[in-house]
Design a protein around this nucleic acid. Sequence first.
DNA 1: GAGCACTGC
Length: 707
Amino acid sequence: MLLTAGGGGGAGGGRRQTPPLAQPSASPYREALELQRRSLPIFRARGQLLAQLRNLDNAVLIGETGSGKTTQIPQYLYEGGISRQGIIAVTQPRRVAAISLATRVSDEKRTELGKLVGYTVRFEDVTSEDTRIKFLTDGMLLREAISDSLLRKYSCVILDEAHERTIHTDVLFGVVKTAQKRRKELGKLPLKVIVMSATMDVDLFSQYFNGAPVLYLEGRQHPIQIFYTKQPQQDYLHAALVSVFQIHQVSLGSDSGDQQVPLPLRQLTVSFQLSETPASGQQEAPSSQDILVFLTGQEEIEAMSKTCRDIAKHLPDSCPPMLVLPLYASLPYSQQLRVFQGAPKGYRKVIISTNIAETSITITGIKYVVDTGMVKAKKYNPDSGLEVLAVQRVSKTQAWQRTGRAGREDSGICYRLYTEDEFEKFEKMTVPEIQRCNLASVILQLLAMRVPNVLTFDFMSKPSPDHVEAAVAHLDLLGALEHEDGRLTLTPTGRKMAAFPLEPKFAKTILLSSKFHCTEEILTIVSLLSVDSVLYNPPARRDEVQSVRKKFISSEGDHITLLNIYRTFKNLGGNKDWCKENFVNSKNMLLVAEVRAQLRDICLKMSMPIVSSRGDMESVRRCLAHSLFMSTAELQTDGTYATTDTHQPVAIHPSSVLFHCKPACVVYTSLLYTNKCYMRDLCVVDAEWLYEAAPDYFRKKLRTARN
DNA sequence: GAGCACTGC
């Protein structure tokens, strides 16, 4: 089945009459909006699309960027009456996308945001009783499914950006499929499920949803020329640098595949050849000439930015000046904004970015993309069961996504810093997140939805059994599980844990805190640990940072130190200047306060008493010992550390306040694998407390250690 | 004495 803009035909592919669109009003803005809406390629296929979707339980929709599928399909369904008996949900992997799409669609429907069209993301629910089209993050819908696994509110769920395969979308695939089946069995309102994806590779989606029909939508992507290097590149950083200046100096319109240029850097020239496959772009006069370079991380990006600026100073006068802008997630927001601002007249922008520019941030005016073919990503090693962050090759889909960033307003050019043969050897798809990370939260959520058997749950891409079993074992240690008639279910504790938007071990920490009379303190600590670090460490000002931070440091470890910082911040009323003086990230600090309020609410809802230990830090440390006992390390006779469970050699991370100390026994909140295996966020504990917390566990560990 | 891609509840 193929739907294209030209072939669809206007109204009424089905027997029923498609309701007309509302008449344009007099407002020029609205008129423009309406015109724009009608000029989308998807518009001419509206009648046929609606007729198809009306009769289908499942459909997979492929639309290139610019097809308008995300804003239009929900409206078509609404106009077709699909939402009369239930809301239309549209999920997004990111908050900003959910919010801006809802804003856009409510504008197009000429309604106030939060009425007919609304959105729900963490900390923000802009919906009402009137809401029929609801945009929400995939994580949010998953959370809703915990209290109603049949998703009774909804008549239709649209899973958008499905090709990104976030862990939440992947779990939702199974949740909506189950809900759909159950609702049919119970004779309830049918649930329509529409999967939307940007990539053509959709067999997996279609197969999973019972052979759902695939509908193709035409997009508005401009042609992009692709060049591969003639030789494999040993040093992708070097190659990227050279490519940027080659692009910058080459005059446009040179159509030859060879781009050998007389440059001061000639000995370093990277030579490219044009790929034979994609259509070559017409040489239109481009509106903008900016360059987007994909690298792997902050350090690389900062170094390359500096080198580019240095070289740009010495370019011949015939060359336009260059504005070099780094881009990565931890860059302060104000600096991120600079990539959206126009460069001074005559300047060419060169944006050096992580994969944040692949999906999360869309920059206009990009003519050239330089793709190193590398990415820093989490990998899961099934043998050791460890997660490692490592630089690796991108997948083909990722490479295409990067390429697509060059053709958004006009024809573009993508330079791939690898050969076509190398490209052919890339993995077809990025390994979905669900096969790469810790599954404890996912399994807890599924059990909270009363999934009969988590080991055989119908995942689209199954995680390895070892992986699932490791998560089950972890939850068992936390006291979340019980075995009922050979079936895994949640204990009352497990059920409470699932209510918190936290890693299970942190949820358990909060639940235990009432026993130790330190809930106030633990709420703060857990909130601090569940957002990005509030500590800001500019390497150039290390001595300053150290002397300023001294006053907060506790010999009891990082948790207590963080608690001290938060308290001071609160006592001073969340003062921004104080944050600056003390190298504290104020944005993250405000987020901590927001998370803390949410967690506190959840505690109150389950009638937990919220008390403070009033300066008694030993209770706080005991509480941490009782919930994090499986993340323990002990000092060995040779002065090194080893974890208690697997005897893995570990070291105290230099960022810890305990770096120069040698406590006999610590609990840690995370392990970081780089050159060494480092423990981060440590707390000094008594070995006795640990045995007290989990006597069986430690007896078993001791036994295996002796064998 | 070292380094943290990106999301999200």
